[in-house]
Amino acid sequence: MDLNRFIDEKSESRLYIGNLDLRITEAALIKMFSPFGKVVSEDFLWHTRGPKRGEPRGFAFIQYSTKEEARLAKEKMHGRLACGRPLVVRLASEKYMVESAEHSSKGVSEPTKVSTAGSNSGQLSRSAKIAAIKNKLKTLEEEGSSAKKQKHEDSIS
């Protein structure tokens, strides 16, 4: 048995589920994801220290028996509302690819979504927020100067 193939198969059948409302329990999560295949394991993450100790961290991992089941669950559950919040569902391996691609790019021209283990999924990173604000200001300045030019041209004619 090829160990690398086994690891690849396992990572492709493991889902990252983020943006979980704190009211969602482990049992509710398993119940939501069971219709798509056999759930082999589930890792529901909790704060282990600090003032939030014992509270859910807002994300979990679910392992299916096959990658096809995981892909089906991802397709059906990504963006679906649970307690009023859209779920973020990705293959666990995709999460790390997205994360490393973002860290390797130095320049930020438009906002990028970041989902690291310690932050809430779906929120923009600090640098992405700053870049978005700069882009917005630049756009507003350009719109303002073109409106002034147009007004000036209209007054001349």
Rank of each mutant, 00 (worst) to 15 (best):
F59H: 12
R49I: 15
L15I: 02
A70R: 03
I24K: 04
I30S: 11
I30Y: 07
Y16P: 09
V40W: 12
G54S: 09
A73G: 03
L45P: 07
A70Q: 02
V40F: 10
E68S: 12
S65V: 07
I7G: 08
L20D: 10
L45R: 15
I24P: 03
E69M: 04
D21R: 11
L20E: 00
A73Q: 02
K67C: 01
L3D: 14
K76A: 06
Y16W: 15
T25I: 12
I30G: 08
R80M: 06
G84L: 09
T48R: 08
N19F: 13
A70F: 07
P56Y: 03
Y64R: 09
E55M: 15
R5I: 14
S11P: 01
R49W: 09
A82L: 13
V40D: 15
D43N: 10
A82W: 08
L72W: 05
L22F: 14
L15Q: 08
M32E: 12
I30L: 14
R85T: 11
I7A: 13
R5W: 14
L72H: 05
R57C: 14
F59M: 00
F59A: 05
G50Y: 04
L20W: 05
G84M: 09
T66D: 04
T66G: 00
R57P: 04
G50M: 00
E75N: 00
F36M: 02
H78I: 06
K31G: 03
R53S: 11
P51V: 07
K76L: 02
P51L: 14
D2L: 12
A70I: 00
Q63F: 02
I30E: 15
E12T: 06
M77F: 01
A27M: 12
T25K: 14
K76Q: 15
E69T: 04
R71P: 00
R49A: 15
N4G: 07
R71W: 02
K52Y: 10
M77R: 10
A70L: 01
H78C: 01
Y64N: 03
S41K: 13
I24N: 04
N4Y: 12
R23V: 06
G37V: 02
K76I: 01
W46A: 03
L72G: 02
W46G: 01
V39T: 11
G58E: 09
T25D: 12
L3A: 13
A82D: 06
A28N: 10
F61A: 00
